[in-house]
Amino acid sequence: MQLKKTLGITLLLLAVCLLTASLSENFLSSYNLENLLRRTALFGIISIGVAFVIVTGGIDLSVGSVICLAGCGLPWLLTTQGWSLPSALMAVALVSAGIGLLHGLLITKLGIQPFVVTLCGLMMYRGIARGFTGDQTVGFGDGFKGLRSLATGRIELPFIDGFALPAPCVFLLVIALLAAFFLNRTIYGRYLLALGRSEEAARYSGINTGRMTVLAYVLCSCLAGFGGVLFVLDVNIAQPSDCGNFYELYAISAAVLGGCSLRGGVGTIYGVLIGAALMQTLRNMIVLTTRHQHMEFAIIGAVLLAGVVADELIKRRHLRRKAVRSLREESTPA
């Protein structure tokens, strides 16, 4: 079931790639592919974080604002405030983790709905970023070239001329492997999946469901913070009113496209990656092949809806068949 699901979206991604390549010769240019991969990597990282929260049956709407806070905070601390690089990075990491901890505790200890908690976060963190920057664009200027190469760097690959792997892809790969390992091979990953499907049954089995839920929100905010840092390193400047705007929706869409259920308990890291890639490829296709770039959200929204509807229909058929089969098995004498 899981495999079939990810197979479907993988085929869809390939189809979109082929279609775009046939419509525009620019698609396969190494400049375009590198850009596409870089954006996929950046969005993939934040989508993995959101996927952890969605697996618990929760939601995190504050991702875009955490990106803004981290993305504006780092250059602001380094250039305006003159902090040293290690202390600035440490501060960004601590604030990101603290935000996740706050969300998790409010949700598990006070029982406030994740939607509400993170909606408030969505408004607060961007507001804070606009506050301390005076709503002015912040950036690195000509400095921090070495640091910026973490996001802008290209890794020349052997055997392939003219194409280099964007550095964020390496981060994405490492994070995705770690995340997949965590979710599938560790007992904690299993706990997350179990509590996402039935919090009560998990709790009755001796699992500290509260602590695991908090962990998911902390992971999500940390990855959002890291993503924010990479975003600002990539483009060099950050506009507090705009940085990371709507990115939580990209991330949630990628996770849902990749097979995560908002009801919780279902999701694979591979699916989320393909989902993030599909979102960015669609966007790329619109940019390259049409003059209607403002239609981007309409088209992405329609594809997402179609994907979710198709998935629901397939699932229903699957369940019905399985129910019929098990009925038949039970009625035959053992």
Partner: peptide, 27 residues
Amino acid sequence: QGVVLEMTVSENVSLASLRRDQKAGLI
């Protein structure tokens, strides 16, 4: 409260003993 309906028999049966049988956090 008893079973996690959408998990497999095997995952359900091991849910309580995963912790005891773990190898450094791994299943």
